[in-house]
Design a protein around this nucleic acid. Structure first.
Lengths: 156, 156
DNA sequence: CAAATGCATTAACCTAGATTAAGAAATAAC
DNA sequence: GTTATTTCTTAATCTAGGTTAATGCATTTG
């Protein structure tokens, strides 16, 4: 295990890199994201203090996700290889549960519904990251999020 | 472990049921799906012979997904409780990898791109299930899938 | 076999969200 | 504190995909 301190904006993993690392956030916040063929970013996950981020792609294949710091951060870096032997199933099952819910949400809820759900589920993250990143996580543009939030307010 | 034979169309798990079972398909095909607040189905997964289906939601919470047979099927039913102790991390990690890719796809690819990807990834399933179910899996309507396929052909 | 149901396709119209652009407000940098 | 850079909002326009509806096939069912 290695501990590193990184500045906001530092990229610690790129798509195509070896996918052998797991990151545990001690301080600050990381995010993982993909970049599509039009150059657009799609945030896959936010990881504040205490959270673990890793590219879930197969260890033997190149990384699919970028991972960077969105705040100055202190990170513990582990090798997947070493941790995988002792891995408990509970956190993995929990992760699967979260991903399943995310897929269902993406398929069946509107932008504003996904936003409301995010707000309830991750209120602490909502306050800490720019709204355009929330939009990216939700799968919409910043303009669209701004609009649906405004509509929501007005209709009350 | 219990083995059951079920007819096409039989529902073996509903949203809200106890979420304690895992199903292994010996013959035929199952699918899991959710129903949104407008009554629309969204297929989460197809499971042909040899595959395992289960609702990934927390075991202690009610099931989120429906599971039914889309062909006459023979199924082995296991209790999650019993299997979870001996669960290896490899298949779980693989599952996480698949779900991650699905989320990225839903956020960053068009309907036709998702269709092409499905076709390459699950050609055997494509041939066996009605196109409207593929559409449901992709997160679009049957009409939209029919249209983009037609457009694709014509533009060549 | 006939009738009924389910499935795929096409087309007209509609809408959520994308795109583009401009300005206001907030944050960061000097 | 002033300037520069991000971020957020609003508005006009555009588009992928949704909705509704009609038609033709294919598959079940009685």
């Amino acid at each position: 295990m290695k501990t590193i301190e990184i500045k906001k904006g530092s990229i610690i993993q790129r798509k195509g890199d070896l996918n052998t690392k797991i990151y545990r956030v001690e301080k600050g916040m990381l995010r993982s994201f993909s970049i599509d063929n039009k150059g657009k970013e799609h945030i896959f996950m936010f990881a504040p203090e205490g959270w673990i981020v890793a590219d879930g792609a197969d260890v033997n294949l190149p990384a699919e996700l970028y991972i960077d710091a969105i705040e100055d951060s202190t990170i513990h870096v582990f090798e997947k290889e070493l941790t995988h032997r002792t891995l408990e199933s509970k956190p993995l099952l929990n992760r699967i549960s979260v991903l399943q819910k995310r897929i269902i949400m993406l398929m069946s809820s509107s932008a504003i519904e996904r936003y409301e759900h995010f707000k309830e589920t991750y209120p602490h993250i909502l306050q800490r990251v720019p709204q355009k990143m929330i939009a990216s996580y939700l799968g919409i543009t910043p303009e669209a999020l701004s609009k649906v939030k405004g509509d929501k307010l007005r209709e009350k």
